[in-house]
Design a protein around this nucleic acid. Structure first.
Length: 346
DNA sequence: GACATTTGACCGGG
DNA sequence: CCCGGTCAAATGTC
């Protein structure tokens, strides 16, 4: 996967072009969903490649120097590398017993999570299964930092890790730093104790959960950001209104940890038995996040094309950003495999 | 017994 | 040499 090197100037326009490309590919995919699986696979690869390029553009052109936002804690953020991680296939890294510090990790995304449970000593479940492997007192921090790795590191070679540290100023907030990407087939539904209908693929199930959430992604403070629309200082605002009939555990729109730095996330505690969910979730997303999620969604979508469909409610994805452009994806309620996709350029 | 967590030691980058 | 990230043995939980 090669990053497309683009000058900082017209980066957003190019990414819009790439997004449009993705849209067209998804449209084709939509057409062929009931047809040739091979063609779907091919389209999936193309979508994946385009998405990767887009991420590469953002990384190389717009996120070479992570700026701290107002919500930023005192955590340093080294520049994102221009070499995004290869997501294709399971990278079976041998994982040498190396205690080397990972300073310039390729996929490093920081978010701030508030635990709705208040006194909980860990942020709300992010949809992945983690295993704690260490804890350290950090100089200048009031609370220790906990180190987690993916539960499926051994079995599936998943290299994803995360660090969780309670914020000094507000004990209800946690700074979560994700490293790497999940290559595992995470069984979030099963892990959350959800009953899975027989004969359905976990991947499809997970995807359908994602599709079942109503999502809205919009830019926030574009004008205040200055010249380049979604510049490095402009986060995306991500809101997910509550979907009727969905339990909080099903409500996680995306379970991937590919969240960017400088994000503020507040979400209900998904493991709480009583669904006393607030009206909506909010998180600020950078374009990198949007693309990462889109990439994940699309790949999962295509992976699931051959799977049997499950009951879903209508879902609508709206990706706002990149100046005045927007991408809308509507999941038709009667058929999960059908999507109404449209773009807008105001 | 299997798996997860705790915790001190170890390692290496800066 | 300090400090952050990881290891791995000990311990806890189911």
């Amino acid at each position: 996967m090669e990053a497309v090197h683009e000058g900082n100037g017209g980066g957003s326009g190019l990414v819009v072009t790439e997004l449009s490309h993705i849209k067209e590919l998804v449209k084709q995919l939509d057409v062929h969903l009931g047809g040739s699986p091979d063609l779907c696979k091919l389209l999936a690869q193309q979508i994946f490649a385009v998405t990767e390029r887009s991420i590469g553009m953002i990384k190389s052109g717009h996120f070479n120097g992570p700026k701290r936002s107002a919500a930023g804690a005192g955590l340093d953020s080294p520049p994102l590398s221009a070499t995004p991680s290869p997501v294709s296939g399971v990278s079976n890294t041998p994982f040498k017993p190396n205690k080397k510090r990972k300073t310039s990790e390729k996929g490093r995304h920081q978010i701030r999570v508030s635990s709705a449970a208040g006194g909980a000593d860990a942020p709300a479940d992010d949809g992945h299964s983690w295993r704690k492997y260490g804890q350290k007192d950090i100089l200048g921090a009031q609370h220790p930092r906990a180190y987690y790795r993916c539960t499926y590191q051994k079995t599936q070679g998943c290299a994803a890790t995360k660090q969780v540290q309670r914020a000094d100023e507000d004990p209800a907030l946690f700074d979560v730093i994700y490293h790497g990407e999940h290559t595992c087939v995470h069984k979030t539904a099963a892990a959350a104790g959800m009953v899975q209908p027989a004969g359905q693929n976990p991947d499809a199930q997970s995807l359908l959960q994602s599709l079942s959430s109503s999502l809205t992604v919009k830019t926030e403070g574009l004008t205040a950001a200055g010249t380049q629309g979604w510049s490095t200082t402009t986060p995306f605002s991500f809101s997910s209104p509550a979907v009727s009939g969905m339990t909080p555990a099903e409500h996680h729109p995306f379970s991937t940890p590919s969240t960017p730095e400088n994000c503020f996330v507040s979400m209900p505690t998904s493991l709480e038995p009583s669904p006393a969910t607030s009206g909506s979730n909010h998180m600020c997303m950078t374009p990198f996040h949007v693309h990462s999620e889109l990439q994940t969604m699309v790949s999962a979508l295509v992976e699931a094309t051959s799977m049997p469909a499950a009951d879903t409610e209508e879902a609508a994805f709206s990706y706002w950003g990149f100046d005045d452009s927007a991408l809308h994806v509507n999941n038709l309620d009667e058929d999960v495999n059908n999507f109404d996709i449209s773009t807008f350029f105001a």
